[in-house]
């Protein structure tokens, strides 16, 4: 190495911070049992940490009967890290979408305890849309064409639509840029990194179709009316549960039961409703009903058709 000292410094830095980080995540057992750790998968702790802190604090205050006296937040930068946290008991509770929730259940032993409604919506669908004058009226018309998805972590904007395409027997091809062209027998997909981007790309003909949540389709800020007029829906998925509440494996039944009770009761109280609205605009929590169970079965089915890179 040309600069051994520099290398040593970086090594020490990395080691030092690894130790610091692990120490922060490994609370002493006496503290851990009194602490409710709420988690989230995100690469933007700055944005989510305060929200999670407030929700964790609210829940801890309402779980005093279970011995919980305080809360903590642990954000995982990706699904793998969250699986690790859950598997090692570092995170107690988190909200996740259907796909990620099922993965965490399968791989980390997490338990789905509640159905999370957002903005009053318990389910959503993925919709495929194209420009009215594109001549594309069905998924089969997309062969040799390009479709825009949101990003690789989006359930409604990537996982479901790509699973639907592969389950429908279409070959899909990842394109680095929307200006790249797919092979004739495959559907090229690219990521728009945003709903408005996607709508604009389709309306301008940069891609032939787009796919995202039905809730995005209804929101003017994401799908402006002026653009929507030039678009049409060409396919939809079955209803997908909007979101799920999961807890780590081996959580005591008392805490689990209390959590379920407290969270379901939140929408019945003014303070609870305010907290829910602050917590990602959740409307309420309900038990997993039969419709939700069916939806989860559909999602589980679709998961088999996900590309290998996405199906971890």
């Amino acid at each position: 190495m040309k600069y051994p000292a520099l290398g040593l410094i970086f090594f020490l830095t990395a080691t030092f911070h690894f130790v610091v980080s692990v120490q922060a995540q490994n609370l002493p057992p006496s503290e851990r049992s009194k602490t409710l750790v709420i988690g989230k998968i995100s690469d933007d702790p700055k944005k989510h940490h305060p929200v999670l802190e407030r929700m964790g604090s609210y829940l801890a205050q309402n779980l005093s009967s279970t011995g919980i006296v305080k809360s903590d937040v642990l954000i995982a930068k990706d699904l793998e890290q969250m699986i690790d946290y859950l598997a090692n008991g570092k995170v107690d509770l988190l909200s996740e979408t259907a796909f990620s929730g099922l993965r965490l259940k399968m791989r980390a032993g997490a338990e789905i305890i509640l159905h999370e409604w957002k903005k009053g919506v318990p389910f959503y669908r993925t919709i495929f849309f194209s420009a009215k004058d594109s001549g594309i009226n069905a998924l089969s018309d997309l062969k040799g064409k390009k479709i825009a998805f949101e990003d690789s972590g989006s359930t409604s904007g990537f996982l479901i639509p790509i699973a639907m395409l592969t389950r429908g027997g279409f070959k899909v091809e990842h394109l680095r840029s929307p200006r790249n062209e797919p092979k004739r027998d495959s559907i090229g997909f690219t990521f728009s990194r945003g709903e408005l981007n996607m709508v604009t790309w389709v309306a301008r003909g940069l891609v032939s179709a787009g796919a995202f949540s039905s809730t995005d389709w209804k929101e003017v800020v994401r799908t402006p009316d002026r653009l929507k007029k030039s678009l049409k829906i060409i396919a939809t998925s079955k209803p997908i549960v909007r979101s799920l509440v999961l807890v780590r494996k081996n959580m005591s039944s008392n805490l689990k039961s209390s959590l379920r009770s407290v969270m379901k009761n939140m929408s019945n109280q003014e303070s609870g409703r305010k907290m829910l609205s602050d917590y990602y605009k959740v409307s309420k929590y309900t038990d997993i009903g039969s419709e939700a169970s069916k939806s989860l079965a559909e999602v589980k089915s679709l998961m088999q058709y996900l590309p290998k890179s996405s199906n971890k």
């Binding site: 970086f10 690894f18 702790p45 700055k46 940490h49 930068k77």
Partner: peptide, 13 residues
């Protein structure tokens, strides 16, 4: 400090 939140959180040196 605002820009460092995520970097420090995930030790992105």
């Amino acid at each position: 400090s605002g820009s460092l939140v995520n970097a420090l959180y995930f030790d992105n040196q």
